Structure formats: C-alpha cells, structure tokens
Amino acid sequence: MFTGIVEIVGTVLEHKELDQSASGGNGNSMVIGDAEKILGDCNLGDSIAVNGVCLTVTEFDKSTFKVGIAPETLRRTNLGQLKPGSHVNLERAVAGHVRFGGHFVQGHVDTVATIVEKKNDENSIDFTFKLRDPQYILYIVEKGFISVDGASLTVTRVDDKEATFSIMMIAYTQEKVVTAAKEVGDLINVEVDLMGKLVEKQLNYQIERQFSSGNLSLEGLVGKIVDKKLAEKSI
C-alpha cells in the first residue's frame, strides 16, 4: 500500500527486455538510480512504486535498485516507454508508524491516459487527460482522489462522454514529480480510487442476487429509473 506522496524522483539507468541474470528472472527488468534517500532501509523483496506501479526489488546497493516488470504491467502502464535517462516518481510502501498524507494507493495501475491539454493557471498547471480505456471514467468523480504517475491528486473536472478528467498541480508538487515536465501527447499512469470499484462490485452482486431470487420490487425500481431517464431525454 502507498500514499501517493512521491518521495523522490529517480533516473532509469538500464532497461532490459530479456534479463538473464539471477535478479532479472529471464524477463523485463529495470535498474533505477539516484535513489539513495529511499534505500537506507531497503530489503530484497520490498515494494517500491515506480510511476505509481508497485514493483518488487530484486537487487540493490546504496543508490540503485533493480525491479522485474511483468508483461501485464507493460500492457497496463507507461513503463514500457521508459529508457535510460528517463525520470520516474518513487515511493516506498507505507509503514505502519507513519502518517497517511495522501490517499490509499495500491500501486496497481488500471490504465494509461494521454495528456490532451496543459495550461498555466497563475502558478499552477491545469492538466486534462484522456483515458485509453474509457470504462474507467465511471470511477473518476469531481473532487475525488486520483493517482497520476503515483502522485495523489484531486480531480477538478470530469467529462464522462469524452472520458477525460482534469487536475490542478500546485507549484510545490511541480517540483516533486515527473508529470510536471510532460507535454501534450505524453502518457501517464492512472489508478482510480479503489472505493468506487468496491462499491460497484457490491451493488452488482446485490442486484444479481435480488433478480435471481425473483424479487420483482427491485426490477420495478430499475424500470422507474429507466422511464425517468427516457422522459428527461424526450424533453
């Protein structure tokens, strides 16, 4: 579990598609440097969020660490685009004794989004993103939490039809995360708030159970909602 409060920005030193070393596991691996600040208490097997993606440390020294990247992770995230010299947001998994400054971030990225607009608003930056997978807009609400490249941010606008959402990045955050330097057309990792997905699953379960038991009162309620929506569209 993570907080979405980025600790430092690291630098990709090496990115291999087929790492045959013992710590590479014959798969995709990445070595990240400039990470001294977060490696003092590091152990093999620890989790570190890299651009919001929870990855397992397979090798480390005083300033660098290696992680393996699964094919599913490459499909879901922007990590496949990283190359030596790329900068990444880093956060250690949260410890039980620390204050929780952001929101509950799993490090399980749902999808990516493209920056479609970037503009200054006084000393802040107003970003608008378009989701690659539009179904995830269901879980994004105005003034709700969103994890963008692992940074906990507040949603300022949502367009359900266009599958876009916006955030406002203050000056302090701009100095602490990699996203501030990205431009229109670049990809960012998105993790939606877990609570929305949990609520949806529970509601779907309850509705299916009601229908399977023959409870027509729920069916009538759904019918009324549908009739109301159709009437609104006809006005």
Score class of each variant (00 low, 15 high):
F165Q: 12
M195V: 13
A163W: 13
K201I: 02
L187E: 11
T164R: 09
M168K: 13
V199N: 11
Y205K: 08
K182G: 01
V177M: 01
E175R: 13
Y205A: 07
T173F: 06
V177H: 04
L194I: 06
M169T: 02
A181Y: 03
E191R: 00
L194Q: 07
Q210V: 02
M195A: 09
Y205M: 11
V178K: 00
I170W: 06
M169L: 15
L187Q: 12
E191C: 04
L203F: 13
Q202R: 03
K176V: 15
K176L: 11
L187C: 07
L203P: 09
L187A: 05
E191H: 01
F165C: 13
G196S: 06
Y172L: 08
T179I: 07
A163E: 10
Q174W: 07
E183K: 10
K182E: 01
Y205P: 00
I170N: 12
I207V: 10
E191L: 07
T179E: 00
L198P: 05
S166M: 13
K197L: 05
M169V: 10
I207R: 08
K176P: 12
Q202I: 10
F211P: 07
T164V: 11
T173H: 05
L203D: 05
N204I: 13
G196R: 05
L198Q: 11
V192H: 05
E183H: 06
D193H: 04
L194D: 03
E175Y: 14
G196C: 05
T164I: 02
E183S: 09
Q202H: 07
V177E: 03
T173C: 09
M169G: 08
K182H: 02
R209D: 14
N189W: 00
A163Q: 15
Q202K: 08
L198K: 09
K182A: 01
I207Y: 10
I170A: 14
D186C: 09
N189A: 00
K197T: 05
N204W: 10
E208S: 05
K197I: 04
V190E: 00
I170R: 09
G185K: 01
T179Q: 00
K197H: 06
I170H: 11
Q210A: 10
Q174P: 03
K176A: 08
E175S: 12
K197E: 05
A171D: 15
Q174H: 14
I167Q: 05
T164W: 09
E175Q: 14
N189Y: 00
M168P: 14
V184L: 03
V178R: 01
V192C: 10
E175G: 06
A163P: 14
A171F: 15
V178C: 03
F211W: 12
L194Y: 02
A180S: 13
K176E: 12
T164A: 08
Y205I: 06
V192W: 02
L198V: 07
M195L: 14
V178Q: 01
V199W: 10
A181F: 01
K176G: 12
F165G: 03
M195W: 08
L187R: 08
V184M: 05
M169Y: 04
A163R: 15
T179D: 01
I167M: 09
E183T: 08
L203Y: 14
D186L: 06
